[in-house]
Design a protein around this nucleic acid. Structure first.
Length: 518
DNA sequence: GGACGGTGAAACTTCAGGTTGCCTC
DNA sequence: GAAGTTTCACCGTCC
């Protein structure tokens, strides 16, 4: 351990070290424990920097206009990038993350304040890893992060590709904390690694897939397989492990994902030679790679729904109440009544049986309602800034939720096929398309065209171009005015009408995309 | 006297991230 | 547990 000599110009250690890093012409990653804190730290450093370059202005502009309408997050990021500083966390969209990483590599961006997103497997020219927070919030309050996490963050400094040496700097706020950090992180040993197979959803998924792929066809083979895993090596008590697996088998049979030729699994425990076979639906569930519990939940919901009036919200809430989509949006204290009110409005459409207010599951259930409301607003054409204000969810997180919801709806579609719920499939396909583009149903014919997303489609619709037929009948000059020359030509080309001339004058009285954006 | 605005203390709220899969509609 | 945000009491100013 070395001590660092630098000017203590400000009362914030991070700020001083960050500015010193710039002074010596190097780059740094600053690790903090929340998204908000990453943004704030980046902003504070940015405010101390006077210089701006043309290159950075262009980058800042790219970051600002990464979405159809800039969110507050985009504005904040853009302000920082102008000064050569950035923040990085899961709330940013892919395009912005990529822009930051690439330009940190090129040297244009000097400092990134980040959550642990950048701690794993990233090779970047950071001379310093400044670790501001070594404690993180958990269910039992604030606790020290694992030594392994500390090592991952430190490991980002001084990569062999870029530097001969690097510095990892941990920030302590008191001398007591300094001692603790030295003992635990600098001189201590990293934690043991534990097998993840012991986690129930993982065990369920693997037991089913082993049977579905006919890799293990008897209970004995299944036990033999697990006996050789790292999980068994660590767990040691094989009898107890076999009991756990037997329990999983019983569940899978109850849910009709597997069949056995014995009466039940517990009876033939000692022999273990009864045949295990997947059912048709069990095989598909394994292929879809969703947790069998989720699959069972979906099947139960679909059965419930057969005598109900269904709505988009029915499906959105169903996928919002699965393990896969976690963490759910949390219902805050102030919005509790509002969400509960919304829940009452949609309760007639819900596929699952709603828990009573007094059950412990109620909180989670209400969170699933909030999550589904967010998805519902998205397909109602609300944009990222609206969702950020209304649901406190950032653009990158919206994208992640949409991806998982899409995967689960696809799985639902496949389950419907096997269960012969043909009428539902059409609705789900439509819903998935609406989620992909973030549009109301009426825009679906338009967004199928390349280069036409939610904004342009809505604008065309407002100008009475509501389907392919309308667009085919439209003259190129009108479309050019609305969409710009390139897009208009591309649309006409897709409609098989490419041999058209570009008009000279705009048609009067049309609202162009530009007017629309203003 | 009341509306308004600024200030600071107190009360309250919130808090990382990532992998899996399938299909291109 | 701590940082950030909201609320609220309090005070001074202006009309």
């Amino acid at each position: 351990m070395k001590s660092l000599k630098l000017d203590d110009e400000f009362d914030s250690g991070v700020l001083n070290i960050a500015l010193d890093t710039l002074k010596i012409g190097k780059q740094a990653l600053v690790f903090v424990n929340t998204k908000k804190s990453a943004e704030k730290t980046a902003e504070e450093v940015s405010k101390k920097i006077k210089t701006e370059s043309e290159e950075l202005k262009i980058l800042a502009n790219d970051a600002l206009n990464a979405l159809s309408r800039p969110t507050k997050q985009c504005e904040r990021l853009s302000f920082c990038i102008k000064k050569g500083i950035a923040f990085h966390h899961a709330g940013l969209i892919e395009k912005q993350r990529h822009l930051i990483e690439e330009n940190f590599r090129s040297g244009a961006i000097k400092i990134i304040c980040c959550t642990p997103t950048l701690a794993y497997g990233i090779d970047m020219p950071a001379y310093r890893a400044i670790i501001k927070d070594l404690r993180r919030y958990t269910t039992h309050g604030l606790s020290w992060i694992p030594v392994l996490d500390y090592m991952q963050m430190s490991g980002r400094a001084g990569r062999p590709n870029y530097d001969k040496e690097g510095q990892s700097i941990a920030i302590a706020i008191s001398s007591g904390e300094k001692e603790k950090i030295e003992e635990k992180y600098l001189n201590g040993a990293p934690e043991e690694i534990y097998s993840k197979l012991a986690v129930e959803p993982v065990l369920r998924t693997y037991v089913l897939s082993l049977i579905a792929a006919s890799f293990t066809t008897t209970k004995k083979q299944l036990f033999d397989f697990f006996d050789k895993t790292f999980y068994a090596y660590q767990f040691k008590d094989l009898r107890r492990m076999h009991a756990t697996i037997t329990k999983v088998l019983e569940l899978l049979e109850d849910w009709e994902f597997i069949m056995s030729n014995g009466d039940d699994f517990s009876g033939a425990n000692e022999l273990g030679d009864e045949k295990l076979k997947p059912t048709l639906i069990g095989k598909r569930v394994a292929e879809l790679y969703i947790d069998p519990l989720t699959a069972h939940f979906i099947i139960t919901c679909l059965r419930n729904g057969s005598d109900k009036k269904l709505d988009d919200f029915s499906f959105l809430q169903m996928v919002s109440h699965t393990l896969e989509i976690r963490p759910l949006l949390k219902v805050g204290v102030r919005e509790y009544d509002k969400i509960q009110e919304s829940m009452l409005e949609v309760s007639g459409f819900l596929l699952e049986n709603e828990p009573s207010m007094y059950e412990p599951e109620y909180e989670d259930f209400l969170n699933s309602i909030k999550t589904a409301l967010m998805l519902s607003q998205w397909i109602g054409e609300q944009d990222e800034e609206f969702l950020l204000e209304e649901f406190n969810i950032r653009p990158g997180e919206i994208k992640a939720k949409l991806d998982i919801a899409d995967w689960l709806l696809y799985a639902t579609e496949e389950i419907c096929k096997i269960m012969h719920y043909q009428s539902l499939i059409k609705e789900i396909v439509k819903l998935r398309l609406r989620m992909k583009y973030g549009v109301k149903e009426e825009l679906l014919p338009l967004v199928r065209l390349e280069n036409i997303g939610r904004v342009r489609a809505r604008m065309l619709f407002r100008n009475r171009f509501r389907d392919i037929k309308d667009l085919r009948n439209a003259d190129l000059s009108t479309l050019t005015h609305l969409l710009g020359e390139k897009t208009a030509l591309s649309v006409k080309k897709q409609l098989g009408q490419e041999k058209l001339e570009v008009p000279e004058n705009k048609r009067k009285g049309q609202i162009s995309l530009k007017d629309w954006e203003e």
